[in-house]
Computed example of a mutant assay.
Amino acid sequence: MNQIEIISINQMVSQGQGNIVSDMDGEKVMLSIQNGKYYNLGEMGGEIWELMKEPISIQSLVSTLCSIYDVDQTVCEEQVIAFIAKLQDEDLIQMEDMDRS
Rank of each mutant, 00 (worst) to 15 (best):
K37F: 14
K37E: 15
K37P: 01
K37C: 14
Y38C: 09
Y39F: 15
N40D: 12
N40F: 07
N40Y: 08
L41C: 11
G42K: 10
G42D: 11
M44Y: 12
M44A: 07
G45Y: 10
G45F: 09
G46T: 09
G46M: 03
E47D: 11
E47C: 09
E47P: 00
E47Q: 11
E47G: 02
W49A: 00
E50R: 03
L51E: 06
M52P: 05
M52C: 15
M52Y: 02
K53H: 14
K53C: 12
K53Q: 15
K53T: 13
E54D: 15
P55T: 07
I56P: 00
I56W: 03
I56A: 02
S57Y: 04
I58Y: 01
Q59T: 14
Q59W: 03
Q59M: 06
Q59N: 15
S60E: 12
S60F: 02
L61R: 00
L61D: 03
V62C: 05
V62A: 07
S63D: 13
S63Y: 06
S63V: 01
S63I: 03
L65K: 04
L65H: 03
L65Y: 09
L65V: 06
C66E: 07
C66V: 13
S67G: 05
S67A: 13
S67W: 01
I68Y: 08
Y69H: 15
D70Y: 06
D70K: 08
V71G: 01
V71M: 08
V71T: 12
D72Q: 12
D72E: 15
